[in-house]
Computed example of a mutant assay.
Amino acid sequence: MEEEAATLTSTPRNSDRALVEGEVVLGVDTHRDVHVAAVLSLVGAVMDTRSFPSTAVGYGELWEWVGRLGTVRLAGVEGSSSYGAALSRYLLARRVEVFEVSRPDRSVRRRRGKTDAVDAQEAARAVLSGRARSRAKAGDGPVQCARLLKLTKDSAVKARTQAINPLKAVLITADPGLREELSGLKTTALVRACAQFEGREISDGGPNAVEQATRVVLCLLAQRIEHLSGQMRDVEKRLTELVERHFP
């Protein structure tokens, strides 16, 4: 009761406008497959807590459920940039101010226990009291597009490096004739040369079996590197076009 009274007498600092009668505050503890939501009144009383699937249908059911309890203008979402990103976009599109909420501290968990329902309630309380001040990223528009493209490019760069290293390691153990054939080539030229090796059948136990296997492996690794390099160039082109179009 003391906590509810404190909530009632404090003015939420998350919005320039005051909450009005009939409004409620939403808190959500997000997971990959299920989101647990809690709705609190203006005095911090728990009105209801329920779980919803993290699907388009689930978001719609959550919105309808909240609407039956009151008008929501503020929401606290755990993991608004990960498991809760799609839900945050859904709420923002409905003119709800969404705030990123950290997990409850240890003192709260010792006092109330650790459950998803408690975490959802604490997310709503963090917004109601003003402790949660970091607004969730919109996650839409050109910024999100750039973020996704950057993620793809970074992944391709990492995978390309992981393919170049074994290619050079295989070359070190190759027969002298093959090493001399490729000696002095820079990485780009080396990859191009290896990619042109024929994918011959590897003879079982023949005198040239090791060299044949080496050429096949070098060819496969080089073709993988070229594919990833092409992806990097494509993503870089898309990023450049995005920036020039939206942020000239």
Rank of each mutant, 00 (worst) to 15 (best):
Val46Asn: 03
Gly206Gln: 05
Phe99Pro: 01
Leu91Tyr: 00
Leu171Glu: 07
Glu180Asp: 09
Met1Ser: 11
Ala45Cys: 01
Thr188Trp: 02
Gln162Asp: 08
Thr71Gln: 11
Cys194Phe: 00
Asn208Ile: 08
Ile225Leu: 10
Gln223Leu: 10
Glu244Ile: 00
Thr173Ser: 10
Ala120Gln: 05
Ala6Glu: 14
Glu198Ala: 13
Arg245Gln: 15
Asp105Val: 03
His31Tyr: 00
Val36Gly: 03
Val127Ala: 02
Gln162Trp: 14
Ser183Val: 06
Asp29Thr: 14
Arg106Met: 07
Ala5Tyr: 08
Val170Cys: 05
Ser88Asp: 08
Thr161Tyr: 06
Asp154Phe: 00
Arg245His: 14
Cys219Gly: 15
Lys150Ser: 13
Val25His: 01
Gly177Ala: 12
Val101Gln: 10
Val43Tyr: 09
Leu182Gly: 03
Asp119Ser: 10
Leu74Asn: 09
Asp16Ser: 12
Ala209Asp: 11
Ala146Arg: 14
Arg215Asn: 02
Lys153Asn: 09
Thr71Gly: 11
Arg179Thr: 13
Lys186Pro: 04
Glu201Met: 12
Leu149Ile: 08
Ala193Asp: 11
Asp175Ala: 08
Val28Tyr: 00
Ala124His: 00
Arg111Ile: 04
Thr173Trp: 05
Ala85Met: 01
Cys219Asp: 13
Tyr59Lys: 05
Lys158Met: 04
Ala124Lys: 00
Ala146Tyr: 15
Thr173Phe: 01
Leu239Gly: 02
Trp65Met: 15
Ala189Cys: 04
His35Trp: 09
Arg68Trp: 02
Tyr83Ser: 10
Glu97Ile: 06
Lys153Met: 13
Arg94Asn: 10
Ser80Glu: 05
Asp175Cys: 11
Ala209Gly: 13
Pro207Thr: 12
Ala174Ser: 08
Thr214Ile: 02
Glu226Asp: 07
His31Phe: 04
Lys237Trp: 07
Glu244Lys: 09
Leu8Trp: 15
Ala193Leu: 09
Lys137Asn: 11
Thr55Gly: 04
Ala120Arg: 14
Thr161Ser: 07
Arg111Ala: 06
Gly60Arg: 03
Thr30Leu: 06
Leu19Asn: 03
Leu26His: 01
Asn208His: 09
Pro104Ile: 07
Thr188Phe: 03
Thr152Arg: 04
Asn165Phe: 15
Val98Met: 05
Cys194Arg: 05
Ala209Lys: 14
Arg131Lys: 14
Gly22Cys: 07
Leu128His: 12
Gly141Ile: 09
Gly206His: 08
Val36Glu: 03
Trp65Tyr: 04
Gln144Ala: 15
Ser229Ala: 14
Lys150Asn: 13
Val127Arg: 02
Val143Glu: 15
Ala120Ser: 09
Ala132Gln: 08
Val108Pro: 01
Ala138Trp: 02
Ala37Pro: 01
Arg245Glu: 12
Val43Ser: 11
Ala193Cys: 07
